[in-house]
């Protein structure tokens, strides 16, 4: 593998890509279903008075952040959409690395997400390593941020993924 990163990939580093809006506003139905799925009785999500006193109104559990962007299973007349983490798949293709694993995932939370919010997201390639060889094969590590903002441009969260794209050593 060449040490040098293709110029196109180099240009992606630090560039906002795949800006998208969520398909629907944040709503309490999914909040209740999520809390029910993990038997989360936190009164912040179930008791309007507690929500008002603590957070100035209802909020969604922070860890739900990515749920607001998963596309509907079906929608009328839909054309091909960008996959979540499209930058990851672009890197695999451009660098000719057919296999990939995610090694770790960090989420940092910002302003509270509230029902009615219209969230937006974009992807940002942070870095690509020099060629590395691990027990999986030879390839490169990369770090991709998925950044989430609300309708006021306030940061509500960033998911940061470390991926390793590789080719099995023959």
């Amino acid at each position: 593998m060449s040490e040098e990163l293709p110029a196109e990939v180099e240009g992606w580093i630090g560039e906002k890509r795949y800006e998208e809006a969520g398909e629907f506003p944040v709503e309490m139905g999914y909040v209740y279903t999520t809390c029910a799925s993990v038997e989360n009785g936190n009164p912040l999500y179930w008791d309007e008075k507690v929500a008002q006193d603590l957070a100035g109104g209802p909020v969604a559990p922070p860890t739900m952040i990515s749920a607001w962007f998963r596309p509907h299973f079906w929608a009328p007349g839909r054309t091909e959409q960008a996959q979540p983490l499209q930058v990851h798949f672009d890197l695999k293709e451009k660098l000719g690395l057919p296999e990939a694993v995610m090694t770790d995932n960090t989420i940092t939370f910002g302003e509270p997400v509230r029902p009615g919010d219209r969230l937006r997201t974009h992807q940002l390639l942070r870095s690509v390593s020099t060629p590395k060889t691990t027990k999986l094969g030879s390839g490169r590590f990369w770090v991709i941020d998925v950044v989430y903002e609300n309708q006021n441009g306030e940061h509500v969260g960033t998911e940061s993924y470390t991926g390793f794209g590789y080719r099995r050593d023959s």
Binding site: V38, N40, N42, L54, P61, P62, T63, T106, T108
Partner: peptide, 23 residues
């Protein structure tokens, strides 16, 4: 992630606010 959040805020009470989580 939702399970981890529930586990931690069961312990802190509702004022506990998650800032960062790594898996």
């Amino acid at each position: 992630a939702a399970w981890f959040e529930r586990y931690l805020t069961d312990w802190t009470g509702p004022k506990g606010r998650i800032g960062k989580i790594q898996f």
